[in-house]
Amino acid sequence: MRLAVALSLMVWAAAAHGQSTAATQARAAAGALEEASRMLDEADGARDRVRALTQTIQAFETGLGAMRSGLRAAAINEAQLTKKLQSREEEVAQLLGVLQSMGDEPSPVMLLHPDGPTGNARAGMLLAELTPALNRRADTLRSDLENVQMLRGLQVDAAERLQAGLTQVQAARTELNQAMANRTDLPTRFTEDPVRTGILIASTETLDGFASGLSEIVTDETEPAPVSLEGQIGALSLPAQGLILRRAGEADAAGVKRPGIILATRPGAIVTTPTAATIRYTGPLLDFGNVVILEPQAQTLFVFAGLDVVYGKAGQVIAGGTPVGLMGGISQQTADQSGGLLSPLREGAGTDRSETLYIEVRQNNTPQNPAEWFRTDEDG
C-alpha cells in the first residue's frame, strides 16, 4: 500500500515538473519576442539600418522558434495531464470519498472496532500513517487541476504572442527589403557584364561549369583587399537558422547525391553571409532556383541555393552577417495566419521547416565537405 502511494506521488511530481518546464519555456520565449519587438522599434533610428533589421529578424526567428516549442510542450503536457486525470477518475473519486469521511468532526462510531480496543488502536495507527499520504495526494490533485487551467491559459496567451510576433517579423522583412534596395554604400571589386553572364548561363549545364566561368563575366576588376579564412574554417556559422536535412553525399528520394548539405529552414528565414565576402553571382541558376555565390577568399566559393529573395549585386564586397536573401514560403503562410501556422503540434514534426537551403563549398572549383567548414551541429 505504502509503495503504491509512493509511486503515485512520483508520477504526479514528474507531471508537475513537465508543466513547470513548459511554462518556463513559453515565458522565456515571450521575453525574447518582447526584446525583438523593442529592437524593431529602435531599428528605424539605427545608423546601420540593414544590420539592425538583420539582428531584429534573427531575434524574432529565435523567439518564434522557442515560442512554438514552448507552446507545443504546454499543449502536450496539458493533454497528458487531462488524459491521466480522466483515466484515474475512479481512484480520484475514492480518494475524495475517503478524505470526505475523515471530516474535522469524526463520529463516535468511527472510534469503534469489531476487535475491540486492540483493533481500534491498530486501525488508528494505520489511519495516522495513511492520512499524510492521502492529504499529499489531494494537494497534488488540486495543484494539477489548477495547472491544467494554467496551461490552457498559457497556450491562449502564447498563441496571441506568436501571432503578434509573426506580424512584426514580416514587417521587419519588408523594411529590410527596402533598406537593401536603398543601400549604396557598399564597396565594389568589379562590374558584372550581363551579356557575358547570360551567355555563361545558357552554355553551362552544371554548377561546376558555371563556377569555372565566373571569372569571364566581370569587367573593371580591381585588386581585392587580402581576405583569409585562416582560423575560421570549421567554426563558421550556418547562413540560416535550421536543421541539417541531408549531408554531403547522401542520396535524396530520387537517388541524387550532391556534394553540399541541405538545411531545412522555416518559411521566410533570413540568410546571411557567415564571413566577409565578395558577391560573385545572384539570381536564378539551372535547377537550383535563386542562387547566391560568395567568394570569402581567393579560389573559394560559398554557394547558397533555393532562396526566394536575393540581395546584392555581383562585385559588391559585404561584411560578415550581411543578409543575402530570404527563404520562400512566407506568402502562403501569411494568407492563413489563424490556421496550421499557429498549431503548436506542428513544431518538431518537420512540417514547420518547409523550406530547404542548399549549401555547397568549392575550393579551386572542387567541392568540399561543408561539415568541415561550418558548425553543422547548430540547432536553429
Rank of each mutant, 00 (worst) to 15 (best):
A79G: 12
G97V: 06
F60Q: 05
G348W: 09
L130P: 07
A179K: 03
A314M: 06
P239Q: 07
M150P: 00
A30L: 04
V195G: 15
T376D: 08
A225P: 10
Q232C: 01
T282D: 10
S203D: 10
D139H: 14
V109M: 13
A73T: 14
V50G: 08
A13T: 12
P284I: 00
T140S: 11
T62P: 02
V50E: 00
L141Y: 15
R49M: 13
L134G: 00
T56E: 14
V5C: 09
Q363P: 01
L7C: 10
Q170H: 13
R246V: 05
A29G: 11
L85M: 12
P114G: 02
I359N: 01
S331C: 04
D220R: 13
R161Q: 12
A15E: 12
L64A: 12
E360M: 01
V309G: 00
V309H: 11
T300W: 03
T366H: 11
W373Q: 02
S338A: 14
D48N: 13
G31S: 02
V156Q: 14
V92D: 08
E90R: 11
V148G: 06
L7A: 08
T322G: 04
P114Y: 06
V218T: 12
L130G: 02
E295K: 02
V309E: 14
A276L: 00
D208P: 03
Q332I: 09
Q58V: 06
M39G: 04
I57S: 03
D193R: 00
A16W: 04
H113L: 03
L141A: 07
S215N: 14
G283D: 05
G249Y: 06
Q178E: 13
S203A: 13
G306T: 01
N365P: 04
L285D: 07
G340H: 03
G268K: 09
R38I: 11
G70Q: 09
L126N: 15
T351E: 11
L238F: 03
T278Y: 15
V11M: 06
A14W: 15
I57K: 04
R142Q: 10
V227P: 00
Q299G: 03
L342V: 15
V98Y: 03
I199P: 00
S143Y: 05
F302W: 14
S215R: 05
G65A: 12
I330N: 00
K83W: 14
N147D: 13
N120F: 06
T62L: 12
H17Q: 13
M180V: 07
G116H: 14
T131L: 10
A121G: 09
R72T: 00
Q149G: 01
L285E: 06
V92P: 04
E35T: 12
E146F: 13
A133F: 10
A319H: 11
W373Y: 09
I330K: 00
T62R: 15
L229S: 05
A16Q: 11
D220V: 01
R47K: 14
P367W: 05
E295T: 02
L33E: 01
A138I: 03
R183V: 01
N369H: 13
R353A: 07
I199A: 10
S107K: 13
G116E: 08
A93L: 05
P296S: 04
G321R: 03
M110S: 15
G116F: 13
A23V: 09
G306A: 05
E223A: 08
Q232G: 01
A32T: 15
